[in-house]
Nucleic acid binder design. Structure first.
Length: 756
DNA sequence: GAGCACTGC
């Protein structure tokens, strides 16, 4: 910010070095590899004109050995001649660190007050790559090179010209600046992972490229998807696919083995294979892929037992073995164990020890473990699937794709030649596995995405140029929900309320509930509840302390409803911050609560921007009633009605039979409830549940609770009885003339002009 | 009487 203030500036540097300037003679976007190489080898940093540090040259020498470095001139030529490039760089090619730097030398964004952006699907990647590149360019992180992720903007406006960021972050920026004018070039990295955000960005950028001829785009992906992207980005005409720039990787060969026959029990087969490798194969660590926490912990125990047996039977030829579980909900400290060295031999010249990491898909992309030589791949993972008919996302153990299997095998060849044992037949691999994992956009509830697209100015959501178009029914479901929430009008256009909702990083139901909550004098409470609903489960339940954990939970439970319990947990956490042991003593996840605190303050800032007041109700009973009313305004489509005597519920309109989830803290089973989630595990459950009154449903969501649209049944009859009773009351003089907040803007906002 | 594949805003 203060770059022009001579008093706060870093050591003075000559404004112009004339012909000594390493960038002397550089014409933007007409730069050659020879020129860049000379500039890189200069004693002066071309971008801040300061002398290079001693380690700069050392790092440069290492960079020169990367496969991509040898093709710099070729890349720059293609960059000069094309607006959009598809680039394929296999593992170890150095594309993520080098290509953005090459682009900077050609674009010279710092001379135009612009930036080069490089997106990543994951926060850690954005941070760590930015750090690495800042070192390579000999600048400090957050100055010329920075990163931007949720909760952390490590950039300096006016100084930063190369920015690594999460794909979701760039999408957010596009909502406020659809032309992304600050960027001279946008690089989408890991495009083959097909995250929702990257898919939407590809659609936006393809369109934007037509409007902004000065914008260049580089899409980086794995080999298998390149053609698809080349065809998608053929903006010069259907017969002219986007040019492909290809760089070989630098990995070691991996030998792949298949089973002769299909394995009926993949966990058992996996354990057997791990022990076989341990007995018969040379030194090197093992990575085994399983599908979830329970399966992993179970396999760890079994392998440990069997390996101990082997060692006892044959201590002269079998070395010690340690098993390390790995999944995302493990605390970071335990995740670090994957980097522990394998155990030493039991005697100085005994057989070497071995490490086995048993992991979910997290080790397929997010985490790399050095020293892995053997991979055991049963061929399954848990995948999200969305059923638009019943509006439910669930996790299903499904066969992986060929691309995924290839990625898993590659994990064995990072340090030296390795082996991959696939626990399925080669025939099944060839004929049964899909080429690619279905992109997320085909497997998700799109309510959020559709609202984002509307805010991005996309008028026709159905005919938007998707790389892969979602099922029409999924889009219809999303449009229907947003229309009921009054975020979209009957023509599908964004309403002023919808524009505000889109600015909150929340599901539309929660955004709606938060925005209307001042009308019920409980925005302070709803803000807390929404933050708690946005973070992972806060309750810990270690397998050997279940009773203690359940007891601790019972102490914090508010019997009137799970939403109130969440609020109580958050408030207790804040009141006990002085006690470092408090979370641990109450079997609560410190990490999740800390995250809730972050989310809450981020949401509060967005509320302030729109002047949505933070208010509270003093009377506790009234407050609780108000909270439940606000819940109805967001979640009126997630209501269930009790049927019969047992804990059986029927969801309203959809008529799905559901049960209260065992984690539910209600001390009774009320007739009407709103729920936060419908989960399909061993059977259909509703989770995070609170009692509501049927009158509120009719009052705050009259469009949805238009009984003429209801299927016949007990739910409809119950609501008809409520209507009748209400009609009698109104005749008695207690008229209710208030506007329904479920279809209107918050009171405060009505007086102001809607923000653009 | 069950769970939380993995990300992201």
């Amino acid at each position: 910010m203060s770059a022009d203030n001579p008093y706060t500036r870093a050591p003075p540097v000559p404004k112009s070095l004339g012909t000594k300037d390493p960038l002397f003679g550089f014409l933007p976007r007409k730069v050659t590899g020879k020129q860049v190489l000379a500039a890189m080898e200069s004693d002066i940093n071309p971008f801040n004109k300061r002398p290079h540090s001693p380690q700069y040259k050392k790092i440069l020498e290492a960079r020169k050995k990367l496969p991509v470095f040898g093709q710099m001139d070729e890349f720059l030529k293609m960059f000069t001649e094309n607006q959009i490039i598809v680039m394929v760089g296999e593992t170890g090619s150095g594309k993520t660190t080098q290509i953005p730097q090459f682009v900077c030398y050609s674009d010279l964004p710092h001379t135009k007050g612009q930036l080069v952006a490089c997106t990543q699907p994951r926060r850690v990647a954005a941070m760590s790559v930015a750090k690495r590149v800042a070192d390579e360019m000999d600048v400090s992180l957050g100055k010329e090179v920075g990163y931007s992720i949720r909760f952390e903007d490590m950039t300096e406006p006016g100084t930063t010209f190369l920015k690594y960021m999460t794909d979701g972050m760039l999408l957010r920026e596009a909502m406020n600046d659809p032309d992304l004018k600050r960027y001279s070039t946008i690089i989408l990295d890991e495009a083959h992972e097909r995250t929702l955000a990257t898919d939407i960005l590809m659609g936006l950028l393809k369109d934007l490229a037509k409007r902004r001829s000065d914008l260049k785009i580089v899409v980086m992906s794995a080999t298998l998807d390149a053609q698809k992207f080349q065809r998608y980005f053929s903006i010069a005409g259907p017969s002219q696919p986007a040019p492909l720039f290809k760089v070989p990787g630098r990995t070691h060969p991996v030998e792949v083995f298949y089973t002769q026959e299909p394995e009926p029990d993949y966990v058992e087969a996996a354990i057997r294979t791990v022990l076989m490798i341990h007995r018969a194969e040379g030194p090197g660590d093992i990575l085994l892929f399983l599908t979830g926490e329970e399966e992993i912990e179970d396999a760890c125990r079994k392998i440990k037992l069997e390996a101990d047996d082997l060692v006892n039977q044959d201590p002269d030829s079998v070395g010690p073995l340690i098993c390390i579980p790995l999944y995302s909900s493990l605390p970071p400290q335990q995740q670090q164990r994957i980097f522990d060295p394998p155990p030493p031999p039991r005697t100085p010249d005994g057989p070497p020890g071995r490490k086995v990491v048993i992991s979910t898909n997290i080790a397929e992309t997010s985490l790399t473990i050095d020293g892995i030589v053997y991979v055991v791949d049963p061929g399954f993972s848990k995948q999200k699937v969305y059923n638009p008919r019943i509006r439910v996302e669930s996790l299903l153990v499904s066969p992986i794709s060929k691309a995924s299997a290839q990625q898993r095998a590659g994990r064995a060849g990072r340090t030296r030649p390795g082996k991959c044992f696939r626990l399925y037949t080669e025939k099944d691999f060839m004929t049964e596995l899909e080429e690619q994992t279905h992109p997320e956009i085909l497997r998700s509830n799109l309510a959020n995405t559709v609202l984002e697209l509307a805010k991005l100015g996309v008028k026709d959501l159905v005919h938007f140029d998707y790389v892969d178009a979602p099922a029409p029914e999924t889009l219809m479901r999303a449009l229907e929900l947003l229309n009921y929430l009054a975020a979209l009008d009957d023509d599908g256009a964004l309403t002023p309320l919808g524009a505000i909702m889109a600015d909150f990083p929340l599901d539309p139901q929660m955004a709606k509930m938060l925005i209307v909550s001042p009308e019920f004098n409980c925005s302070n409470e709803i803000l807390t509840i929404v933050a708690m609903l946005s973070v992972p489960n806060v309750w810990l339940r270690p397998p050997n302390q279940r009773k203690e954990a359940d007891l601790a939970k019972a102490h914090l439970t508010v019997p009137d409803g799970d939403h109130l319990t969440l609020m109580n947990v958050y408030n207790s956490y804040m009141n006990n911050k002085h006690d470092r042991q408090w979370c641990w003593n109450n079997y609560l996840s410190q990490r999740a609560l800390q995250q809730a605190e972050n989310v809450r303050s981020q949401l509060q800032r967005t509320m302030e921007r729109y002047e949505i007041e933070l208010v509270t109700t003093q009377d506790e009973r009234k407050m609780w009633q108000n909270i439940r009313k606000a819940l109805v305004c967001g979640f009126f489509m997630q209501v269930a009605h009790k049927e019969g005597e047992k804990n059986n519920y029927l969801t309203v309109k959809d008529n799905q039979v559901v049960s209260l989830h065992p984690s539910c803290g209600l001390d009774s089973s009320p007739e009407w409830v709103v729920f936060n989630e419908f989960v399909l595990t061993t059977k259909p459950y509703i989770r995070t549940v609170t009692e509501v009154r049927p009158e509120w449903l009719l009052e705050y969501a009259p469009n949805y609770f238009d009984l003429s649209t209801f299927p016949d049944g007990e739910t409809k009859r119950a609501l008809q009885r409520v209507l009748k009773k209400r009609a009698l009351k109104v005749d008695g003089g207690a008229s209710n003339g208030r506007n329904s907040p479920a279809s209107d803007l918050p009171a405060k906002k009505r007086k102001k002009t809607a923000p653009s």
